[in-house]
């Protein structure tokens, strides 16, 4: 997915020197400069604790920067998320939280998906149309009258996305959408995210799973352990920079074994690692083993 959106597209978010400090002590973001344009599919890469979730909450207008300036949808974020303007903003920008249990607070799936459209004051017919579309898009129409506690992890994630889709946002922010999912469910969800991106929406996905990045993103922003942007580019360029990925704690080195060959080299943290290197005989072999 190495295509970049046309440079003429409007800036959806513009952050300059943004800092965020929790409780006046704990620095979550420390000088973020970032511009995201309409129609881009951005992967926010970073190890645990680098402030990805905080950045997404900020992009969704739930929290504001402690320092620095931030523009969203062409205006100061404080203006677009205040009072009645918040309605328009949340219709345009939707956030899918990392923990679906946080997002699914209603007694049934349908109630959760209908929550956003109801807040917009739509008529019952319009609410129904929005819900039907969102449920169909995520392939979960059959779960409409289920209670959240009856759903599997993958189903919960899909419902969480549908609950945001029902508002018809132009921008969707996803926080670790594939975390804690089995491989099949994970790739079903990855394809759904890719499909959302292909429909022209701006998608920002926070993740530390490198294997999904080329599928869901045309741009990668890496947040380092210093809580600043340390790289910004196409997936092929960023993912090829092994030194950068090691420094950002996205891959690591350790001893492991393929068949009879034990050796050390860098790895991703999750999923399958596929790589080629010379065996003792000098023959170059490709290995595709389950990761550690």
């Amino acid at each position: 997915m190495d295509t970049v959106a046309p440079p003429a597209a409007e800036a959806v978010f513009k952050l300059a020197g943004v800092r965020y400090v929790y409780n006046g002590r704990q620095v979550a973001l420390d000088g973020i400069d970032l511009e995201i344009r309409a129609g881009e599919q951005v992967a926010l890469l970073g190890a645990n604790g680098t402030g990805k979730s905080t950045l997404l909450k900020m992009l969704d207008g739930i929290i504001g920067p402690s320092e620095g300036s931030m523009q969203a949808l062409g205006a100061d974020v404080r203006l677009v998320t205040a009072g009645d303007e918040a309605f328009r903003f949340h219709r345009e920008v939707g956030l899918v939280f990392q923990d679906p249990d946080v997002q699914l607070f209603s007694p049934t799936v349908l109630d959760d998906v209908a929550f956003g459209p109801l807040q917009l004051g739509l008529s019952p017919e319009e609410v129904k149309r929005c819900c039907d579309e969102a449920l169909d898009q995520m392939g979960i129409a059959h779960l409409a009258d289920r209670a959240p506690f009856e759903l599997s992890g993958g189903e919960k994630k899909r419902v969480a996305i549908a609950s945001v889709l029902s508002l018809g946002p132009r921008v969707i922010l996803l926080d670790e959408p594939t975390a804690s999912l089995d491989p099949r469910t994970k790739w079903v969800l990855v394809n759904l995210i890719r499909m959302l991106g292909q429909s022209g929406r701006t998608i920002v996905t926070a993740t530390h799973e490198l294997d999904i990045v080329p599928v869901i993103a045309d741009r990668v922003v890496v947040i380092g352990e210093n809580r600043r942007v340390v790289a910004d580019g196409r997936p092929s360029e960023v993912l090829a920079n092994r030194e950068l990925l090691i420094e950002a704690n996205l891959i690591h080195e350790h001893l492991h074994q393929h068949g009879g060959l034990a050796h050390t080299h860098e790895h991703e943290h999750d999923g399958t690692h596929a790589h080629a290197h010379a065996a003792a005989s000098g023959e170059v072999r490709t290995f595709r083993d389950p990761g550690p």
Partner: peptide, 21 residues
């Protein structure tokens, strides 16, 4: 706190509205 943030993110302003079929 997180649930309230999720409600705000979907346009909740304190007025309760429910959907009935």
């Amino acid at each position: 706190g997180d649930v309230y943030a999720a409600m705000l993110a979907r346009g909740f302003t304190g007025e309760v509205r429910t959907y009935s079929t």
